[in-house]
């Protein structure tokens, strides 16, 4: 949703907007505009005007248009794909101007492009499979081996998270899964022996 004014602040608990305060640090500001006071700290980026997209329709014959928006004037050449792109399509990546489409395509190539924005958390999946089924203990005969398989398959690669380092979830999931498998083996052996 575009801001109604170029320089304004969005309230945190509603969709209303308030103008910038007179000072960079303002306490209990904005109640008369948005109904609730906010503590506001501003940074120089709030005054920046160059970042906002200024799109113009193609009005002159012969003027280049954007590859993805034929009715908008092209203002840059994508450093990845070489296509002419408008202000809406362009973004800065590693100091280069690229199009969002080329950036997403580059992300699909292994070893290149941007880091993945989503990751499967195999450690959390293994831990959940080892813990949650205990509520219905009889299904652990299936979930415990699955959890152990995940731990063996993915555990060697370490934490799945981009920001979390520790792989303790794998250890806990593996330990619990082993205990459950041992318990089932014991039950089955005793049952067969009995």
């Amino acid at each position: 949703m575009a801001r109604p004014e170029k320089f304004s602040l969005r309230a945190l608990r509603s969709v209303r907007y308030m103008p910038l305060p007179e000072l960079p640090w303002a306490q209990n500001y904005g109640a008369e505009h948005v109904g609730e006071g906010h503590d506001v700290l501003l940074f120089p980026a709030v005054l920046r005007t160059g970042g906002s997209s200024q799109v113009e329709s193609v009005v002159e014959a012969g003027q280049s248009s954007c590859f993805f928006h034929p009715n908008l004037a092209a203002s840059q050449i994508c450093d990845l794909s070489g296509r002419l792109i408008c202000e809406l399509c362009q973004t800065e990546w590693e100091g280069r101007i690229v199009s969002l489409e080329a950036l997403q395509s580059a992300g699909g190539q292994s070893g290149r492009g941007v880091p993945a924005q989503t990751r499967i958390r195999w450690d959390n999946i293994a831990l959940s499979l080892a813990v949650l089924p205990l509520l219905l203990w009889f299904i652990t005969i299936v979930t415990a081996p699955v959890a152990l398989l995940i731990v063996i398959w993915r555990g060697r690669k370490g934490s799945c998270s981009e920001v979390q380092r520790s792989g303790w979830r794998y250890w806990v999931a593996g330990g619990l899964a082993l205990l459950q498998i041992t318990a089932w083996v014991t039950i089955i052996v005793l049952g067969l022996g009995g």
Binding site: L9, D39, L42, F43, V46, R48, T118, R121, I125, S161
Partner: peptide, 24 residues
């Protein structure tokens, strides 16, 4: 970072941060 089984990562450059707001 958001999500339990699928981690979704959003990056906000420090150069792009315009304001910090705290609403009691």
């Amino acid at each position: 970072v958001d999500g339990v089984y699928q981690e979704r990562v959003k990056r906000i450059r420090y150069a792009d941060i315009e304001a910090i707001l705290i609403c009691p």
